[in-house]
């Protein structure tokens, strides 16, 4: 049911862990839907120099966390904030339809970490909306 890339990122997830004194930390998801992602960012001169994650969730949740963190490593904050779940999906050669929400969660986890970073920097972040990834209001059709 999962592509080889998904299985690769699930079996050998990249960037698992925590960053002490991270510049931005974001957590999304909830226990009810069974997926929680937490992303830590280390940012120097507007560049994401390090990123780590911890995820409670299914194989797809782990794989999307791993891939999403790989995709933003070394990028500017601006570039990272443009990461879409579609890009994560494509990089993983797709996910089964019931698992697409996991890629949304990965996008949101990174957005939440960036929001936290910007807030710490003193920016106004009141217009940055973070979804929890599984309320289903978007019909889980976001791609």
């Amino acid at each position: 049911m999962y592509s080889e890339k998904v299985m690769d990122h699930f079996t050998n997830p990249r960037n698992v862990g925590e960053i002490e004194n991270a510049d931005g930390v974001g957590q999304v998801g909830n226990l009810k839907c069974g997926d929680i992602m937490k992303v830590y960012l280390k940012i120097e001169n507007d560049i994401i120099t390090d990123v780590k994650f911890k995820t409670f969730g299914c194989g797809a949740a782990v794989a999307t966390s791993s891939m999403a963190t790989e995709l933003i490593k070394g990028k500017t904050v601006e570039e990272a904030s443009k990461l879409t779940n579609k890009a994560v999906l494509e990089a993983l050669d797709g996910l089964p339809p019931v698992k697409v929400h996991c890629s949304v969660l990965a996008e949101e986890a990174i957005a939440a970490a960036i929001k936290d970073y910007k807030e710490k920097q003193g920016h106004d972040v009141s217009d940055m909306q973070i979804c929890q990834g599984c309320c289903g209001k978007c019909g889980e059709s976001r791609e």
């Binding site: 997830p13 698992v16 925590e18 957590q27 226990l31 929680i36 992602m37 937490k38 911890k54 995820t55 409670f56 782990v62």
Partner: peptide, 8 residues
């Protein structure tokens, strides 16, 4: 568990 934010 090492990967889980809940465990952390």
């Amino acid at each position: 568990r090492q990967m889980s934010p809940l465990y952390e």
